[in-house]
Design a protein around this nucleic acid. Structure first.
Length: 201
DNA sequence: TTTTGATCATCC
DNA sequence: GGATGATCAAAA
C-alpha cells in the first residue's frame, strides 16, 4: 500500500507514530488533515486504525479527542465530543507484532461500528464520572486508572505544555492538556464481537 | 500553536 | 506483560 502511494516506509514508528493511520486514510481517499469533523464527512465516518496482536487483540488504547477541560462540566453526554466522534467508526486492524517489519505488516478487513445502546450507556457513565471530576476541580488528581471503558490521559507534545482548567472554586488554572482514550478492554470487545475472536488464548 | 494521526518507554 | 504517563510528526 505504501509503495502504491509512493510513501517511504520508516524503519520503525518511534518518530513516525501516526504513519499507519495516515497511510490508510490516504488510501481510502480521506481528506488528509482536514479540520475538525469526521474523516469522511459525507458518510459521517471516523477512521481508526487499531494495532492488534497475533490473537487479534488491541495492543494500544485508542485516542478519541481532546478533553475540553474548561467546559466539560457544562456538556451533557449527548453533546459530548466523545459521543460525536464515536458515533460511526471504521476500525481497521493492523498487524502490530514488533517482530514483523513495518512494511510487511498486514491489514485486517475493516469493521464499520456504531455503539450499541449498552455501549453508549456505558461510555456515558464514564464520561459523566470523568467530566464531573474535572468540573469540580480535580483534573490534577485524575489518573488513567479512572473510568471503566473511557479514560483521561495526557495528550501533549511534551510534559511542559499547559492549557486551562477549572480549580475547585471554578477559577482557571494552568494544567497539562488531556485527551479521552478508549481502553483496550473496550475495543477488544468490539473486535471480538465483529470477528468472533476467541475470548482467551 | 492546535488538531489529527497515534506509539513509545517506563513503571508496576 | 499490560497499562500509564510521555512523547513524536505532519498539516493547517
Amino acid at each position: 500500500m505504501a509503495e502504491r502511494l509512493g510513501r517511504p516506509v520508516p524503519p520503525d514508528q518511534r518518530r513516525h507514530k501516526g504513519w499507519v493511520g495516515q497511510l490508510v486514510e490516504a488510501a481510502l481517499g480521506g481528506e488528509a488533515g482536514s479540520a475538525a469533523g469526521p474523516d469522511f464527512p459525507h458518510l459521517g465516518v471516523e477512521l481508526k486504525t487499531i494495532p492488534v496482536d497475533a490473537r487479534g487483540a488491541p495492543r494500544e488504547t485508542t485516542f478519541v479527542c481532546a478533553a475540553p477541560l474548561t467546559v466539560l462540566g457544562q456538556l451533557t453526554w449527548a453533546e459530548s465530543p466523545v459521543r460525536a466522534k464515536l458515533a460511526r467508526v471504521l476500525w481497521v486492524p493492523v498487524q502490530a507484532d514488533p517482530e514483523v517489519p513495518l512494511g510487511e505488516r498486514r491489514l485486517g478487513s475493516p469493521c464499520l461500528w456504531s455503539p450499541s445502546p449498552e455501549e453508549d450507556a456505558a461510555l456515558g457513565a464514564d464520561w459523566r464520572e470523568l467530566s464531573g471530576l474535572v468540573a469540580d476541580g480535580y483534573v490534577e488528581t485524575i489518573t488513567a486508572h479512572r473510568g471503566q471503558w473511557l479514560q483521561i490521559r495526557p495528550k501533549a507534545a511534551h510534559a511542559r505544555i499547559r492549557t486551562w482548567a477549572p480549580d475547585d472554586e471554578g477559577d482557571p488554572i494552568r494544567t497539562l492538556p488531556r485527551g479521552f482514550y478508549l481502553r483496550t478492554r473496550f475495543t477488544a470487545r468490539i473486535l471480538a464481537a465483529h470477528y468472533r475472536l476467541p475470548s482467551s488464548g
